[in-house]
């Protein structure tokens, strides 16, 4: 799914990376636990989270995430946006809750990562 499609479905604001909206993500992963993101997210994922600290950017970088969506209207501060810019990781922001964000994207055809526990 293209990021511009993600943006439309989630009624999201682009905090950084409007030039990357034609890029694709293969799967979605909604989580506030960064260790679980490291454990389970696989492929070019869209990371949906309510955490807005710099570890989210670092985690997204390590798993090579396609973009990050901050849910529940949460907004990262300037230093976090600057870190994302440096790593070229697009940031989106939606007022929707995590559950509804994931639900809308899943219904529109964005699957979860295929990796299961273990």
């Amino acid at each position: 799914m293209k990021l511009k499609e993600v943006q439309r479905i989630l009624e999201a604001e682009v905090l950084y990376g409007s030039e990357f909206l034609e890029e694709e993500v293969q799967a979605g992963f909604g989580c506030d636990l960064m260790s679980d993101v490291l454990a389970f997210a696989a492929g070019k994922v869209l990371l949906l989270t309510g955490l807005t600290n710099s570890h989210v950017i670092r985690t997204a970088e390590i798993i090579d995430a396609g973009a990050i969506v901050f849910v529940r209207g949460k907004r990262p501060d300037k230093t976090v946006v600057a870190a994302a810019r440096e790593k070229k990781i697009p940031l989106l922001c939606t007022h929707l809750l995590l559950y509804e964000s994931c639900g809308r994207l899943y219904r529109a055809g964005l699957p979860g990562p295929s990796r299961r526990r273990g």
Binding site: D32, L33, A39, L51, N53
Partner: peptide, 15 residues
């Protein structure tokens, strides 16, 4: 609160 300390670190490394 920062998203760590969930007891997944060492198992993640092992995996």
């Amino acid at each position: 609160e920062m998203g760590f300390g969930a007891g997944m670190g060492l198992p993640n490394i092992k995996r």
